[in-house]
Amino acid sequence: MILIMLDKKQKRRHFLRTLVLLGSFLPAKVLLALPVEKQRQAGSLSALPAFLDTLIPEDISPSASQLNVGPDLIGRARQESGFERLLILGCTWLNEQSHKQGKQLFENLDEAARIAIVKTAEQSADRSLPRVFFKAVQYYAFEIYYAHPESWVSLGYIGPPQPVGFPDYAEPPELPRT
């Protein structure tokens, strides 16, 4: 029947639009004027693992870091300069927020403080840097994290779909062990 498709071009356009929007924010404006290499020096992605682990913490299933979501995300971002710039700006923003709380770096905050900052990002205005950063990282973090079989166990999802398939398809599902 019908499929909803989101192709790579659409994703690329999304980030190009994001980049244009970010042009009106400081220090985004300053950072955006720099080549990517300079941005990498000026900004830092050190806050990213902690940010990801705040989005996807460890409980009975692994955290984002335990499944290497950060390196995968950065690797993907490096193929898309707009996305990499967004990560750098977003992590810079996280550290600015943590500075306001008297701490040096976002990754050194305790979980409650990190959660408070992530909430601020989530609840920021639609086209603001923190909101765009939050939504983009959430979107791709989910994709990378939930492509790992370790993340499926507690869901009761016994995948990938092949080669076994789901021969029990006509029966009530077995509930996952918790």
Partner: peptide
């Protein structure tokens, strides 16, 4: 969502 509540909801709602 995100955080622990996201993971709990995933377990409740998947399937």
């Amino acid at each position: 969502g995100w955080g622990r509540s996201h993971k709990t909801s995933m377990r409740e709602q998947f399937g």
